[in-house]
Design a protein around this nucleic acid. Structure first.
Lengths: 333, 333
DNA sequence: CATTTTTGGGAAAACGTTTTCTCTTGCGCA
DNA sequence: TGCGCAAGAGAAAACGTTTTCCCAAAAATG
């Protein structure tokens, strides 16, 4: 390992110009003959010159690094987000520090301190719950902060998915394939996203409907089906589930009762968590929150702010997308 | 945002010493009266002085950042690993760049270039498969590299889990609770880990046993059970599965056939993928590869190398751990 | 008391860029 | 011919530390 790195000084010498001219040639600034510029660039490429980030940062105050803070240890939400951020930024030469802080205030602070010490160009705060804050105050940092899939202060730039639109799409899809008695099995009422999704469900079916609250687990999906499909009752012909795990539990329960999915009952999930959605039998039609896209937007936005452009605060809702598999029947036109 | 950062110059002034003395006081080097040192430190703390990482790096050539490269987009393996790395290093002031490179050579190269440009102190290469290499050559980089859960060159420092020991533990546990007819349902024979686990299985039961190869899916677990439990046959009384998804498929299939788990058949998985292992009914007893510990070791090792200490190349196998839940019956003493 | 050694601390160089001046040269124009 | 101006390029300052000398005073030594 360790070939000595070549400095701009060497490039300048080899090209027969001064260091100043070499720098200007490479950065496309200053005035000089096109020929000179080309020659310097050639030499630099040949020598494999890569400017020293420390020296450059010392002057420009930019590190081309950002931090992604998350309390989602499991990566359910933060990984697609991260992937989007990274995607959007790698071509700008920006790398991403991932810091998982699991609701520990001390740990969070240490991570944030480490990020600030390294002069990150910005921070993206993200979480596993859109209606909770991270256990650390990022509001008076010397770098720009954007929030994605977590709650920020009032005047912050925040990206979330449009749960209402996603839910409307899901329920309307069920209606469009002829389903009439659609119920909603979902998570704890204390979650903001539960409210959004349930409200949209009611809005789409045009009446109060049936909303069952429980936990975010397969077990609850099971149990809810047991409750809905007891004898001497008119059975639902479709279930809109608050997440994919509930949907999977529901589908398993339906199969155990000999009720055919999707022939007799259609099931839609929420999250498009591949590992769950692809393993259900039949594979699950579900709402994808487009977290990668969310990450991309968040990444580009924090970069803009780092470059000094003003960004209006507010909540940006990015559209969800219904991913049609086989748990509903019908076929999207 | 943006309170001007205080420079060491201001600290020196406020403490009535020179910049040189201030630096030495803070870094615990040089010679001076204890009282002077204490005073400088006090003032620095009071002013909230944080040394500029660019200036420092320019001299020390250290960034206190490392890169974690992985092609495991889904994070199944890389997230626990990352978590361990980060854990071990955050208290050394080191942050971790996460780069997911999904088997794309160009993308990999861009990420690696970005890391080198930032003068990372080291790189940890990791993957989703222990017998595959990343699509990029890290062998002649100017920074130390360690490999974790992926294959490196022959003379590299590599960390993997001890699949043999983990498998022996699992099968011996089944034997210790009285199981006699133990079969092994696992993934494609082309995987190194499949071979390790199957060999250990055979070693533990002392004969050839029954090994069924298929895919890493629930569907295969299902199917394999269908094949094993056809009438007019002596049924196995335990299944050692190559991963948790297969185990889940198997358990579901057993339940559908009215075979009681764990009363009639014990099932053990591999991976301890919480989301699967905790959702099976009953919850799955399974082998945990201790990826966090793996990450911790890899992190500390790459740091040692960054600090210039020699580390002997070779493959380090870290122990697995059997996590006992309810899919086997019995109870560990 | 004279010399050497140690102690405490400062001046300045170094790290590798970018950027702001400044300088020379050549050219157009009256 | 003399003047102004633009083009092209370089010298040097700046960024904020760390580190290497160096120096004066104090202490130890003979």
């Amino acid at each position: 390992m360790s070939l000595r790195r070549v400095r701009i000084y060497e490039v300048a010498q080899a090209a027969g110009v001064s260091v100043a001219t070499a720098s200007k040639a490479l950065r496309d600034t200053g005035r000089m003959q096109d020929q000179t510029r080309a020659r310097v660039k050639d030499v630099a490429a040949q020598l494999g010159f890569r400017p020293n980030a420390f020296a450059r940062g010392l002057i420009s105050k930019r590190s081309f690094a950002i931090g992604l803070l998350t309390n989602d240890t499991y990566g359910r939400f933060s990984l697609p987000l991260m992937s989007g951020v990274s995607d959007a930024l790698v071509d700008h030469g920006v790398s991403v520090f991932l810091c998982t802080i699991e609701d520990d205030e001390g740990l969070s602070q240490r991570h944030v301190d480490a990020l600030l010490d390294k002069h990150v160009d910005g921070i993206i705060a993200s979480g596993k719950r859109v209606d909770r804050r991270l256990p650390v105050d990022l509001s008076k940092l010397p770098v720009p902060v954007v929030y994605a899939f977590t709650q920020g202060p009032d005047d912050s730039v925040t990206f979330v998915s449009d749960d209402r639109q996603g839910s409307l799409d899901a329920v309307n899809w069920l209606r469009s394939i002829g389903r009439q008695r659609i119920v909603h099995i979902t998570g704890p009422a204390s979650f903001q996203s539960v409210t959004w999704r349930a409200d949209a469900y009611r809005e789409a079916i045009g009446n109060d409907g049936i909303v069952l609250h429980g936990t975010w687990t397969e077990a609850w999906g099971h149990q809810a089906v047991d409750r809905l499909f007891c004898p001497n009752q008119i059975f639902p012909d479709a279930i809109f589930c608050g997440n994919d795990q509930i949907a999977r539990g529901a589908i398993d329960a339906l199969r155990e009762r000999g009720i055919a999915v999707p022939e007799q009952v259609s099931v839609v999930g929420f999250d498009n968590w591949e590992i769950v959605a692809a393993a259900t039998r039949p594979p699950l039609t579900t709402v994808d929150m487009n977290l990668r896209a969310l990450g991309r937007e968040a990444g580009l936005t924090v970069l803009e702010m780092a470059e000094g452009r003003e960004v209006a605060p507010g909540i940006r809702r990015l559209p969800c997308e219904l991913v049609v598999r086989n748990s509903c029947g019908g076929a999207r036109d």
